Simulated assay, not measured.
Amino acid sequence: MRLITFLADGRHRVGALLDEDTTVLDLTAAAPDRPEFRSMLALIESGPAGSARAAELVADRPSTALIDAKAIRWCAPLPRPPRVRDCALFTEHLSAALREMARRQAAAADDPDAAFDQLMAGGRFTLHPLFAERVLYYTVDPLAISGPDDTIAPPEDAAELDYELEIAAVVGRNGSDIAPGDAGGYIFGYTICNDWSARDLQLKLMQTGVGAGVSKDFSTTLGPCLVTADEVPDPYALTMRARVNGEQLSLGSTASMTHTFAEAIAQFSRVGGVYAGEVIVSGTVASGTGFDAGRHLKPGDVVELEIDRIGTLRNRVAL
């Protein structure tokens, strides 16, 4: 199934996409007494029984609950996820990004080349071997989730907004001490993530060593839909693209992941467990930013992230 959260009568509702995403079946309206359709999180938490009931409604297509997909306001599939971890499942991008950040920091020196060599020799801009050994991540603010077609405004005093092309897996059930071979079965589905960054603020904050902070926490976009795992036979063979105003700037593939979502779930389950509805984001695919392409986003730019079998996530930069 291809599931969405949309806004109607002032509250979030759960829908299933039909007819090549042109029609929405309002699951909340089709079964108003069923608690599993009160929110996307409730549907995920209801487990196989809730998903089976949703599949029955999709097959029945009750006409009173069908809506034109263009007539509703789409929201993030999980507007308020219980937890979001942005991981370094792709590591190739990180190495290139660190070198570019070092080069930018060195640019203000009297001898930029010497300053760059000194920064790289210090090790802070070289990818640590631990990134290849285990899944490293940072926690994303779940209160700052945005959705498809939302306008994205950079934080105050930021001048260089950037997109990041990422895929995310949503955990389908609670678990702890999950065996690596079983971890893939804990994935409910997949969505697209735009992990927006304020590059100029990020570069300043990196010099302090305290983390990304406001350069990341102002917005993380999920959408346009949540595609159940059965609809994605091989999540590690998906083409990923990013366009700005229709021009393709990024092209990558989930095949280039260093770590899998299953590895992340197995690792996270050993400390504190994983929970239904939590979002595990891949990190950025190689070439997956404007930073990589030497392109700065401008007010009014339209950013589109597209991933095979999921769709296209579109946002506009605030004027």
Rank of each mutant, 00 (worst) to 15 (best):
I4E: 04
F6Y: 13
F6K: 01
L7A: 09
A8W: 08
A8G: 10
R13I: 11
R13D: 06
R13T: 04
R13G: 01
L18C: 11
V24G: 03
V24K: 01
V24A: 03
L25N: 05
A30W: 04
A31F: 08
P32N: 12
E36P: 04
L43E: 09
S46I: 09
G47K: 06
G47C: 11
P48N: 04
A49E: 15
A55L: 11
A59V: 13
I67N: 01
D68T: 05
C75S: 15
A76T: 06
P77M: 07
P77H: 09
R80L: 14
P82G: 15
V84E: 05
D86F: 07
C87N: 15
A88V: 10
L89V: 08
A97S: 14
L98V: 07
R99M: 11
R103C: 01
A106G: 09
D111G: 03
P112I: 03
P112N: 11
P112H: 09
D113T: 14
A115E: 14
Q118T: 15
A121F: 10
A121D: 14
F125S: 05
T126W: 01
L130K: 13
A132T: 12
E133H: 12
R134V: 14
P142A: 10
P142I: 07
G147I: 03
D149Q: 14
P155I: 05
A158K: 09
E160V: 10
L161M: 14
Y163D: 02
L165W: 02
E166P: 10
V170A: 06
V171H: 07
V171K: 08
G172F: 07
G172K: 02
G175S: 05
I178R: 02
A179Q: 13
A179K: 13
G181M: 09
D182Y: 01
A183P: 02
A183G: 10
A183Y: 02
Y186F: 15
F188D: 04
G189N: 06
T191I: 04
C193H: 05
C193L: 14
W196K: 00
S197I: 04
S197A: 15
R199H: 08
L201I: 13
Q202Y: 05
L203Q: 12
Q207I: 00
G209T: 09
G209P: 08
A212K: 13
K216C: 09
K216G: 09
L222P: 02
P224W: 03
C225R: 05
V227R: 09
T228Y: 06
A229F: 06
D230P: 05
D230L: 06
V232P: 00
P233N: 06
A237E: 12
L238V: 07
M240V: 08
N245C: 11
N245L: 07
N245D: 15
L251R: 14
S253A: 11
T254G: 10
M257H: 10
F261S: 03
A262V: 01
F268A: 02
S269Q: 04
Y275L: 14
G277T: 03
V279D: 04
I280P: 00
V281D: 00
T284S: 12
A286Y: 10
S287K: 11
G290I: 01
F291P: 00
A293M: 01
H296F: 12
L297M: 12
L297C: 02
D301Q: 07
V302D: 08
V302F: 02
E304Y: 10
E304I: 04
L305S: 03
G311C: 03
R316L: 00
R316P: 00
